[in-house]
Amino acid sequence: MEYKPRYPQPFSLTEAKLLDVETITEEIARLQNSLHRLNETQDMLREHVASMQQGEEVDPEITKAIEENETVIGSQSERISMLKMALLDKGIVAGSHYDLASPPPRVVAEPAAARPAEEDGGVDL
């Protein structure tokens, strides 16, 4: 049974299975980076639309960009799935390492006075 993608793709699953592991993993990384950027753009566009005054018309170019980005996001996500299936066919389980990473949590440092004193004789910085 052949995999039938929902979106037009530049290659089939059968063709993806012919690629070497390094090429597949590099393409997954490239697509994940692209998806990250596209999602950031979508967030900015949606924030802009949400911040508009009531009754103000949304620029049709913004609406078009949001719709086009959704299609590209769907296509690229599907392509990543196809590449993961190709890795699985090669006996490699594409675990969380190949999943789109969320941005790291923002770390806010506590002032030194708020931190408890170290009891182990270590140096407080």
Rank of each mutant, 00 (worst) to 15 (best):
K84W: 00
P116D: 11
A65I: 15
E40W: 11
P5A: 12
T41K: 13
L13M: 09
M85F: 05
A65K: 08
A112E: 08
P10T: 02
R37L: 11
L35F: 06
G55T: 04
N39Y: 07
E2G: 09
Y7V: 05
Q76H: 09
M82Y: 02
A65G: 09
I24V: 05
F11Q: 04
V108G: 07
P104Y: 01
A94F: 02
L19R: 06
T71E: 12
L35G: 06
L19E: 02
Y3S: 05
L100T: 05
E70H: 15
I24S: 00
E2V: 14
I73F: 06
T41S: 12
N33H: 11
A101V: 12
F11I: 10
S75G: 10
Q9C: 06
V107A: 11
E118I: 14
A50H: 14
N39D: 06
V108E: 15
L83H: 06
I66T: 01
L19P: 02
N33A: 14
A50N: 14
I28Y: 02
I62V: 10
V72T: 11
L88P: 06
T63I: 08
A101K: 14
L88G: 01
G91K: 08
R37T: 10
E22T: 12
H97W: 05
T14M: 11
D99M: 08
M52S: 14
D89N: 14
F11S: 03
L13G: 00
T71L: 12
S81R: 12
D120R: 04
